[in-house]
Design a protein around this nucleic acid. Structure first.
Length: 202
DNA sequence: TAGGCCATCTGGTCCT
DNA sequence: AGGACCAGATGGCCTA
């Protein structure tokens, strides 16, 4: 699948990044982010529980609706001896077992997506109705680098406090973000306080 | 039209 | 046995 390749490549690139490269996503995942920040959030099909509970949902058109599978297919399935994991069960029992497994899995994935939404909500990027939400992989990579950036900022703050308390012996703090002269330079883009305005093209 | 992203289904594996 | 987790497969939608 080509779907994962980009992610893997992105991951590899992210690993090689310095800790202050939170915003270097603009390079590794730039096109994704740019696309995300430019385009409006499309109305993604999200059948919700009715995908399983109500066979008429949009998802069912793809033909993979478990509920709509005809009795014929069930019989064929039985003849083929598929789903051999539960050989002692009648086709209908197997079917209903499968459906409940599918529903659980669907619920699990929805929970995962809810968690990702929660993560998105605390990552500083453009939260506006006209901005498409971050992809899953971009969310994770951005979150990781945001954490690293915050840790670095915290460390720098500690150094600053120590410097102010103890005087000259310590070297003056260095701002961790290349190209920024300090807090005053960080207001270029409110969505990305790191100062890299390349992600602020919205 | 190709590629990216996604939701869903499915079978396998591990754990309780 | 049943549930959770995972990865592969599939097909739909959207954008460049």
């Amino acid at each position: 699948m080509s779907c994962g390749e980009g992610a893997v490549q992105g991951m590899a690139e992210m690993k090689a990044m310095p800790a202050d490269a939170y915003l270097s996503l603009a390079h590794s995942y730039g096109h994704t982010l740019y696309g995300a920040l430019r385009g409006a959030e499309p109305t993604r099909r999200f059948p919700g529980p009715q995908a399983m509970d109500f066979p008429g949902s949009s998802r069912d058109k793809s033909g993979d609706s478990s509920e709509e599978q005809s009795g014929e297919e069930e019989e064929e399935e039985e003849e083929r001896g598929s789903e051999g994991k539960v050989p002692g069960k009648k086709p209908k029992e197997r079917r209903s077992l499968r459906l409940s497994i599918n529903a659980r899995e669907r619920r699990r994935m929805h929970d995962l997506n809810d968690a990702l939404d929660g993560l998105r909500s605390v990552i500083p990027y453009a939260h506006s109705p006209s901005v498409r939400k971050l992809s899953k992989i971009a969310t994770l990579l951005l979150a990781k680098n945001y954490i690293l950036m915050q840790a670095q900022a915290l460390e720098e703050m500690r150094r600053l406090v120590a410097y102010l308390n103890q005087g000259p012996p310590l070297a003056p703090p260095v701002y961790p973000y290349p190209g920024t002269a300090g807090p005053s330079a960080q207001d270029k883009c409110p969505a990305f306080p790191g100062g890299n305005s390349s992600l602020c093209k919205h």
